[in-house]
Amino acid sequence: MGDGVEGNASGRIEFPMSDFLRAEFHVHTVLSPCADIEMIPPLIVEEALRKKIHILAITDHNHTANIEAVQKAAKDTPLKILPGMELQTSEEVHVLCLFDELDQALAFQKIVDAHLPNIENNIEYFGEQFVVDETGDFIRREERLLLTSTTLTLHQAWEEVQALEGLFIPAHVNRQAFGLIPILGMIPLDTPIEIVEISRHLPVEKAAMLFPQIQNLPLIQSGDAHFLEDILGWNYLSIPEISLKDISEAIKSLCPQKHQIIPD
């Protein structure tokens, strides 16, 4: 996984904006039925390092079973894997739920499990849902269909993520399918959403014009990676430490010295 990646004394990778870390907050693994078979831990880590990404969140649909394998694959590299999940709420809205520690994500999983309908995955229609180890080897199939709505409402999900001190970021809010704005029309008043994700196809400068509902909200932009090439790392962060607190403060600051979205 060498090419062009050089760690310095502090373990940080050198790249043009030397104080900034590249981050990608929305990556699926082979556990998500719609993700490509190449989305296995060693290849995800290799691709991220190749693109000089420092922070990468694993966000499978309604599940967390492959996070630890990716964390193990990233061990002893400069890449920090954030545990996460792309939750589907009862309103059919997708939300990135990010955590600092694996234990928090696993605690959230228990809540989600209790709210996930027991529908068997139809592999032919939806695709395989593989749990794998850090080398990408098969461990088991997840039998329950993950690409479906939980019975958690957006507000309930927000409360649960708050209680676990996670970060709650509605995903691709501009998208017709599973995006908050098309589905709910506007940011709900009862849920203090602080950051939203826009999809890679919506230029940041057009977001506020096309979607005035989000014009005052801090944005992130992600690849929603189902293929290796979708791992973008367009979020650049200047933060004291890699923690959710510092990440969210930098994004919410709306300050270009702390967070910028720079498409390749």
Binding site: E91, T153, L154, H155, Q176, I181, P182, I183, L184, G185, M186, P188, L189, D190
Partner: peptide, 23 residues
């Protein structure tokens, strides 16, 4: 889809939906 409703529902119409969200 509430964005469609905003664009398409007739004034003073009756709206049928399974969406129960506050919005």
């Amino acid at each position: 889809m509430l964005s469609c409703v905003m664009a398409g529902a007739p004034h003073r119409g009756i709206w049928i939906t399974l969406q129960a969200h506050m919005n």
